Computed example of a mutant assay.
Amino acid sequence: MKSALLCIDLQYLDAARGCGVFADSGYSAFGKEGQEYYFARLEKQVLPNVQKLQALFRDKGLEVIHIRVMSQTDDGRDRSYWHRKLDLHCPPGSRESEFIESVAPKSGDLVINKTASGPFGNSNIHSLLSRLGIAQLYCCGVFTDVAVESTIRAAADFGYCPMLIEDATASASDMVQAECVNRLGGRYCEVVRTAELLEDLEQHIRSVRKETGYW
């Protein structure tokens, strides 16, 4: 199976202090304690792990795909019902639509824009993955229980083999994170951690090279 790394919603909308949904310090979905937990996990663990994963995937010629919330229109009339209801609006060129610099796309990476929680059903991701012959999706990003979960559930229903990289995702608390991982693992995806994934990919690629002479 061809593999791709999906980097989900690592943008100023929901992955930067004081920006996007966190512009209001009293953001009700997290609260002050939840925000401190979330950004500590994001900055100390998730973003460094995503950097390592992106570097390996690029080095080995595997696809790195960035998924973000961004409308096609300035007024956001193409947004999904729930994004309009929640007043989530990332027009083209907005700060909220920009990627976090440390994990931003590089030359050769692919970018998919979406207008709902997950990209299936409101973007060209399925046709793109089909054209590329990709069947295995390694998922990282935020929030674990929202966009990441939506992506994994839909991917499984579309016949892909999703993999949740647990320590490269983040949500509002350890409890929310654990509940989401338990809810998805073994039903919609396999759950892995960054270190074991990096080692497994290196070993697999060495094996392929030895057997086929490829790469």
Rank of each mutant, 00 (worst) to 15 (best):
T73C: 07
R183A: 11
S173Y: 07
E98Q: 15
D74P: 06
S123R: 02
D75N: 15
I100K: 10
A154P: 03
R79G: 04
S97D: 07
S173N: 07
G159F: 04
M163E: 08
V103H: 03
A156Y: 11
D167N: 15
D109V: 09
A156P: 01
M175T: 15
L132K: 03
I100R: 09
R183E: 10
E63Q: 08
A155G: 12
A154Q: 11
R77Y: 09
I152R: 00
P105L: 08
W82Y: 09
D109Y: 04
R131Y: 00
A172L: 14
D167H: 13
H66S: 03
L128Q: 01
D74V: 07
L132H: 01
V146R: 10
H89M: 11
A116P: 03
C140H: 02
N113I: 03
G76R: 10
R131P: 00
R84W: 06
F158D: 02
E98L: 14
V146K: 10
D157G: 07
R131F: 00
Y160S: 02
S123F: 02
D78F: 09
V146P: 03
G185F: 04
H83E: 12
V148F: 02
D87F: 13
A147S: 15
S97R: 03
V148A: 03
V148R: 01
H66A: 04
S130V: 04
E179M: 14
S150E: 04
E101H: 12
